[in-house]
Amino acid sequence: MLFRRRDKPTRLERIRVAVWPRHSWVRSTRYFSKRVLRLSATPHAIALGFASGAFASFTPLIGFHFLISFALAYLLRGNMIAAALGTSVGNPLTFPFIWASTFKIGQMILSGKTSDANAQEVHAQFQERLLQNSLDTLLPMLKPMVVGAIPLGLIVGTVSYVAVYKSVEVYQRRRKQTIAAKRGPLLFRTAKTKDQDGD
């Protein structure tokens, strides 16, 4: 197979690469942004797809992010590939902040309190439950995290939609201009050759 590695990566290495990129995070982010820009769809469909993936990454259902993003993209008529790429908003660097913020906001929405004392209590409760391995203590965390994921996911999804829409629109416009600029001299040479052949 073309470009296949000589040494087959071990399972541990594959897990490490999935959690932490082989190259820098900046390079990986640049790669994903180029993948999004080069998708062949309308800016609206690409932006909707990416926003669906960004929204899905805020839910605590880690194993289902792709399925949730695909379902949202299908309902909103967004691009499926962009939806998959949008789930990269949730990654090992952002997950701790996403989980803590969704839990905190969910607790505030459910309890209706927004005081500083309550915020400290929520933070301590989150850390205590997160460090315990018992499923019984983790399950009660899902309800406030799901509730908190909705407003945060909508905000990040909206911001993602606007940013991706503008970026894709500019990229596609410049690409069309570049292609038109390259075709212009070619069409001129072709027409000139035909005229000479006609003479």
Rank of each mutant, 00 (worst) to 15 (best):
R38I: 01
Y31H: 11
L130N: 05
I15G: 11
L187E: 15
T193F: 12
D116K: 13
A100T: 04
R16G: 02
D197H: 09
K182G: 06
K166A: 12
P144S: 14
A56V: 00
V122T: 01
F70I: 08
V26C: 03
F58Q: 07
L12W: 15
E169H: 13
L187S: 12
G112L: 12
V164C: 08
V168M: 05
I68Q: 05
L67R: 06
P43F: 03
T87H: 03
N118S: 10
S111F: 10
R30M: 11
L48P: 00
N91E: 07
E128C: 04
A180N: 12
A119I: 07
H123K: 15
S101D: 06
K34E: 11
I155G: 05
Q196T: 00
N91Y: 05
F3R: 11
I105Y: 05
V168I: 00
Q177C: 05
L72E: 00
A83I: 01
G90N: 02
L152G: 04
I68W: 01
F70D: 00
S115K: 14
L154N: 06
K104H: 11
A41Q: 10
R27I: 01
P185Y: 08
P21R: 14
V19H: 10
F95V: 14
Q177I: 04
R6T: 00
R175K: 15
P9Q: 14
V122N: 01
M145G: 07
V159N: 08
A119M: 11
P9T: 10
Q120G: 12
S167M: 10
K176P: 02
Q120E: 14
L131K: 14
L67I: 08
A45Y: 00
P43N: 08
L75P: 02
R14Y: 06
R129S: 11
S111A: 13
K176N: 10
V89P: 00
A56H: 03
T190Q: 14
M1C: 06
W20G: 01
L2T: 04
Q172C: 03
Y74S: 12
L130R: 09
Q127A: 13
A83M: 08
F70T: 02
L110Q: 08
K166V: 09
A18Q: 12
Y31S: 08
E121D: 09
L154I: 04
R22H: 15
R189M: 02
V146R: 05
Q125H: 11
V19C: 13
P140I: 01
S88W: 04
S28F: 13
Q177N: 07
S160C: 10
R35L: 10
W99T: 00
D195L: 15
K182Q: 13
T137A: 06
H65N: 10
S40H: 13
I15W: 15
D197C: 07
V159T: 00
S28C: 08
A149F: 06
F126V: 02
G86N: 04
K166S: 09
W99R: 06
F103I: 03
R173I: 01
L39V: 02
S115A: 15
L75D: 04
